[in-house]
Structures are given as C-alpha cells and as structure tokens.
C-alpha cells in the first residue's frame, strides 16, 4: 500500500473544501428566484412599469449574488492559490 504524502492529503481536502464552499450558491439562488418571482408578479399587476421593475430586480439580484461570490472566491483560493500548502 502506497503512503499518502502530506501534500496530497492537503490537496485532496482542499478539493473537498472547495466543493463544500460552493454550497453557498444555494442562498443566492433562492434569493434571486424570489426576486424574479416578485418582479413577475409586479409586472402582472402594473405592466406599464416594466422597465423600472426590471432594472430594480437586476440591481437587487446582483447585490444578493455577493454572498455566493464570497463562497466562490474561497473555492478559487483553495484550488488555485492554496494558503495551506505553505504551512507544511
């Protein structure tokens, strides 16, 4: 049986950690979907304000996306600029 080196172990755990970090994508998904649903309801009620509603919705969705992007940033750091390898 071959030995697992320290570096390989850290890389494997980092890959798993990156996968777990992307669970952060769930929240923005729900939030953006909710915003889009509400916007659709608003357009149904007041079709004249469609352009205003659309721009407000897009702005809100982009802000809601931020937390997901923090998770993405952590996943990227773990995969491509791993700080843990330097601690060996």
């Amino acid at each position: 049986m071959t030995q697992i080196t320290n570096e390989a172990l850290i890389l494997a755990c980092s890959a798993i950690g990156a996968g777990i970090a992307m669970i952060a994508g769930v929240g923005p998904g729900i939030g953006q979907g909710y915003a889009a649903g509400q916007a659709a309801a608003a357009v149904g009620r007041n079709p004249g304000a469609k352009s205003d509603i659309t721009s407000t919705m897009l702005l809100g969705q982009a802000v809601a996306e931020t937390t997901g992007l923090y998770g993405l940033a952590i996943a990227f750091i773990l995969l491509f600029a791993n700080p843990l390898l330097g601690k060996l």
Binding site: A62, E65, T66, L69, Y70, L72, A73, F76
Partner: peptide, 16 residues
C-alpha cells in the same frame, strides 16, 4: 470590497 469582488467574481467565474 464587495463592489470589487462582485465584478471580479462574476467575470472570473465566466472565464473559468
């Protein structure tokens, strides 16, 4: 920080 990370994260994820 959030302003820059938002732009960076979106474009980088597309590139990746």
């Amino acid at each position: 920080i959030s302003l820059s990370l938002r732009l960076f994260g979106n474009i980088l994820s597309g590139t990746v």
